[in-house]
Design a protein around this nucleic acid. Structure first.
Lengths: 215, 215
DNA sequence: CCCGTACTAGAACGGCTATTCGAGTTAATG
DNA sequence: CATTAACTCGAATAGCCGTTCTAGTACGGG
């Protein structure tokens, strides 16, 4: 195995630590690790922990009992729900935060990621429904086909935002904001106007739908 | 102060423990608590911890270093992903857990709630896609129209599960498991067979879709 | 004044913890 | 074969940890 230098046992050890923290609410002691992994010697555990530390998987606080921290915490964080996003006509830009939802570990940057509540059915054919939460990762660039939050800046006004698929149509020198609803027409914006008046605020990285919890 | 019997210092101690856990990722030791609160004696700390425990604020694991847990954790919990659920043909019953996803605070009972990964497109018209996570709240009863996990028990075999809308058709004395895909036929089960061979395992309370996080 | 409750200090104990050291194994490389 | 890297064990050490014990202070009621 001449490429990545983290052995099987170290990976398993990391997994155990991760699970232990999740289950017990605190990191395990070296001895507990050894017991769980059938390692007879505490020095042995220390050795592998040093390796994990050197490779950057964990950090340790010297001499402190249970002094292990995961450097890539998989802990998912809540993201704030910033308001509503129009999937139909551009809606007034989202109002203030009112709640948070929790998203999976695949979504990073809990500091900047946020969520919006979808209004309307214009993305229905992409199976994004009225009332769904869309999780937005802020970015100003995007690729063709991405589902994005597009903001229309109008003179001085704070702007209005809409949820659409983004397509750059070079042959027509324009941007197409495409709803996923055959009853609706795309928004076509000449490139010159786009640069002045529009901006991509972020792209959709996840969708969350609450189906009701009532008995 | 003749009403609630938790003294100032104990309240402060609880706050410190809460903050310490938040900051350090593990509970503090008794001595660390003492240092932080200007308490000279470890026995003294132990005394107040016993009080907190007796009053139900914390729980402790005997003799275990940092063995303090908050009994009213404010943190929302993740739910385990138990495997795959067929939205088309009934699939072998879900395999073992492999991951967890985190869901919003609106979903309670993190102990019993779990998630499944949808396979197939039979619920596509309800905007549940292949690869979506469905969050399941276990319950054996459900109402007409609920989207449920229906398990088919066959002699001795562990069973197979499928995701469908549930309808009790009294006029035909049968149960209809209705896919949300006009190309597919419902599963019709006479009431007598239903009771013997089928069981509702839970209903869908939320849906989560990961749209990819790539740049 | 006595008594109970709440709190504080200090010391001591046995067990647990992290860390280090010396020594050994295995497998791959040159 | 010698060397190296990765891994394993057992033992030892110094210090940390939870817990318990004795002793004390302050306060409020009876």
């Amino acid at each position: 195995m001449p490429f990545e230098q983290t052995s099987e046992i170290q990976r398993k050890m990391y997994d155990f630590i991760e699970k232990y923290i999740k289950g017990e609410g605190m990191p395990p002691t070296n001895r507990e690790i050894g017991r769980a992994m059938n390692i007879a010697s505490t020095g042995h555990v220390d050795y592998h922990l040093s390796m994990l530390q050197k490779k950057g998987w964990i950090s340790r606080q010297e001499k402190k009992s249970r002094g292990i921290k995961l450097t890539r915490p998989s802990k998912p964080q809540g993201v704030p729900v910033k308001g509503y996003i129009a999937a139909g006509q551009p809606l007034d830009i989202f109002s203030e935060a009112e709640d948070t939802i929790d998203v999976g570990p695949s979504l990073l940057d809990p500091d900047t990621t946020y969520a919006l509540i979808v209004k309307g059915r214009s993305m229905i054919e992409d199976h994004i429904c009225d009332g769904d939460y869309v999780v937005i990762k802020p970015q100003i660039t995007c690729q063709n086909g991405d589902i994005v939050v597009a903001v229309h800046m109008q003179e001085g006004v704070s702007g209005s935002a809409t949820l659409k698929r983004f397509f750059q149509e070079k042959e027509h020198d324009r941007v197409r904001l495409q709803p996923a609803n055959s009853e609706l027409e795309p928004i076509l914006i000449p490139k010159s106007v786009w640069d002045r008046e529009w901006q991509v605020q972020g792209k959709v990285v996840a969708i969350f739908r609450n189906c009701g919890n009532a008995a």
